[in-house]
Structure formats: structure tokens, C-alpha cells
Design a protein around this nucleic acid. Structure first.
Lengths: 143, 143
DNA sequence: TTACATAATGATACAAAATATCAGATAATA
DNA sequence: TATTATCTGATATTTTGTATCATTATGTAA
């Protein structure tokens, strides 16, 4: 379990109120050692706080993502996005507006696994270069 | 526009019936030169085939993904997945069951951009190693 | 080319995932 | 402690995606 005083300091440093719900949600994600969805987090947290609302879990997961206390496993574009299966390339993804731009594979240094993961047959390596796009950077300056 | 005979051959090689709807959907994705969602594809296709159903677009996008004629921009886990923002690591993602496993960063060769993308402030590089996990490979053999 | 079996389409209902709203409760701070 | 700002939880709504199934179109073989 996350220590009370540590959690208060963590929230403080991110400008967040240190509520009981937040502590339990955060501790639950930490304890799961996996890649839980908000629904799963909700199920687990409900055992500690039966009255908690799914909306609160969603709110706080979003808050934690925004503050960097949690991060997304892979960038989630809201809805499915597809592309022609043509040339090998990767993507620049803006963490603010979620816009996606192609990045030619040759712009990335040699990409290979040092050791093959046991029992996993690799078919492709997809790289997301995350950051802030020019448009979002411009908005930030103007604030 | 994708040529009729080419498209027929492409479908044939994937064991798919070459319907008019499929041709228009496929051509639309190719013409967009981006990373469209099924909703956007639907909007565009509807201009050519006003009677088309959203379900048909979804069906065929899924069919094209399964056959490899299209691919997903980034693996989509159905719902948002989060993790503690702790140590640097990447992910093994099974393209069949969508399970996610951590992959220590040191198992991946040096990862860097040869040229910084103009106007894009990079904050992190996330790598998804895509493939078939052991459980799914086992299922496949037993078929 | 026609006939037939198979597969795809489109309308619709449904389910899942996520967001918005807002009154009341709780936490931060002075 | 009192006051203000923020958060919570209930609920409604939106968005995204899937299931069902009668009708229609496609592929194949005679």
C-alpha cells in the first residue's frame, strides 16, 4: 500500500487534493503490476470503497494521466485508426491532441531485439514517438 | 482510384469476395493518406454509396485488418490501459488476444532518432513489439 | 449463361466505453 | 474553524463497436 504521507506529498507536488478515493485508486493501479483498464480498476477499488462511482475512477485516472502520475500503455486514439499496409514506417503522436504523423523508418536507428522473448513470435515492431506537435506547442506558449 | 482488376486480384489472393462496397472502402482509405477512423471512412464512403451501412464499413475494416490489407495505426486495446509511471520499458502485444507484457528497455537495441522531427518536441519513445503470444500460438497449432 | 451455394450487405438492436452535469460532500488554506 | 475551491457520486448522454438476420450480391460449376 502507498504510504499516506508519501501520497499526500505526491498529490501536493502535482497540485491535487489528496482524497481517500485517489489514494485507493492510485494504490490499486500500483498493486496490480499490470496494465489495467478503468473498468478493472473500478472493480478492485469497489472492494475497498463500495460506494465509489465509475465516474470518479474515470475522472481520477484522467487526472493522474494528465499529471504524469500514471501513463497510458499505448496511445489511445479514442477510436480505431487504420492505414494502408504499405511501406514500413512509425508514428509521431502528439500527447495533447492525439494527432498522428508518419515517421519514416529510416529516421530511427537500428531497431532490433537483443534477446527474443520466450514463446512470443514477433511479427512487427511499432514505434510511437510521443511528444508535443507544433500546433500544440504554439498554443502552450500563448497561454 | 484502385483499379478494378487489381482489386479483384487482391481480394482473390486473400480469399475475399470483391464487392463494390469493399472496393470503395479500400480505395477511400488509400486515398485519405492518413490514419482514418471507421467513422471518417464511413462519411467519405457514403458520398459514393449513400445507402451503405456503418456496420458494413466496420465489418470490412475488420476483414481488411484480419487479412493484412490494412493495419492498425497503434494497437487498440478495446479500452484504455494504464500503468504506474515507473521504470522505462516497452511492451509485447499479442495481435490475437491483445494481451500486454512488459519488455525491459535493455532488451531493445539503442533507440534514437537520427533526425529530430521539425517542430515536434519528443518526450518519450514507446515501442510495441507485436506478435503472437505463447497461448495464442498453442491454440493455432491445435486447430 | 444460368443455377445454386456461399458470402456480404444494410437495417436495426444492443453492448461497451467514455464523458458531461451538477448537487452535495470533502479537502486545502487562511 | 471558517471559507473557498475542489472533488465525489448519481445519473444521463454520447461515442464507439458488435450482433442478428432477412435480403441481396458474388463466385463457381454445370
Amino acid at each position: 500500500m502507498v504510504r499516506e504521507d508519501e501520497f499526500v506529498a505526491l498529490c501536493r507536488s502535482h497540485g491535487l487534493a489528496a482524497t481517500h478515493q485517489r489514494r485507493v485508486i492510485y494504490a490499486t493501479v500500483a498493486s496490480l503490476h499490470g496494465h489495467p483498464s478503468p473498468e478493472l480498476i473500478y472493480e478492485k477499488v469497489k472492494k475497498k470503497i463500495p460506494s465509489i462511482s465509475l465516474a470518479t475512477v474515470y475522472n481520477n485516472v484522467r487526472t493522474f494521466l494528465a499529471s504524469g502520475m500514471l501513463r497510458e500503455v499505448s496511445m489511445h486514439h479514442g477510436s480505431l485508426r487504420v492505414e494502408p499496409n504499405n511501406h514500413e514506417h512509425h508514428h509521431l503522436v502528439c500527447v495533447r491532441c492525439r494527432s498522428i504523423t508518419d515517421l519514416h523508418a529510416k529516421n530511427l536507428g537500428l531497431l532490433r531485439l537483443k534477446t527474443q522473448p520466450r514463446g512470443f513470435r514477433v511479427t512487427r515492431i511499432a514505434v510511437d514517438v510521443l511528444g508535443i506537435c507544433a500546433a500544440c506547442a504554439a498554443k502552450e506558449v500563448s497561454k
